[in-house]
Amino acid sequence: MPHALLIKFPGTNCDAETARALEAAGFTAEVLPVALLDESALDRTQLVVFSGGFSYGDYVMSGRIAQLITKNKLGDRLRKFVDGGGYALGICNGFQILAQMDLLPKASLIHNASGRFMCRWVPLKKNGSKVSPFLSALPEQFELPVAHAEGRVVTMAGDAAGYVKSGLAPLLYGADVNGSTEGIAGLQDETGRVFGLMPHPERFLFKADHYDPDWSGAEQGWGYYFFKGAFEAMTA
């Protein structure tokens, strides 16, 4: 059974439901306060998860302090973990943290075009033919909730279009949600084992959690299939 390690910073607040979703998909999940994090923690896990929330309050650039503290504690150990076949996932604030770790294609997450925090459901579509374990059990189009103030992906000129073309941006919004360049909602590395996204798959684990009580897209919420896809790839 693959093990997932969820690193919890002061202000991380989606760790419990993310752990629940991982367990539902078959993982064993362990929430680890960052005060207890050291390099050896990566030895006991196959998946490192940065959950959503407001690490250290996000008063400076979102995720910045969490990224610096992780770097300080793990050095290049996380890079080695990924190179050795490990998986890393960042959701929302976790994506903001992961985006600064040089594990994903270069991009920044800045304030939404509206300038506001926004909690709503968004249409999403898969993009490209790259192997993406996290999306493998999902259909071409689906929905998930988002809740963020800084979810707009920006890159150096032309990079975003390149990511869409190459498949490094495997997840796009089906509508303009936050002004994200090329509608990018998620990014992955070349292997697909490192994945970051703004939407919250852990918040749509159960069918009943859709806003429309007549929703009948699948047996479970789409979020379940997100984690299930990763589980299947890791146990294949």
Binding site: C14, A16, G52, M118, C119, A147, H200, E202, R203, Y211
Partner: peptide, 23 residues
């Protein structure tokens, strides 16, 4: 105003403040 509040965190909000076919 409702959209500025995270009403989905903890993943347990079954009946949300805004719902219906268009949410």
């Amino acid at each position: 105003i409702i959209r500025e509040y995270d009403h989905e965190v903890q993943g347990n909000t079954v009946l949300k403040p805004l719902a219906g076919a268009s949410g």
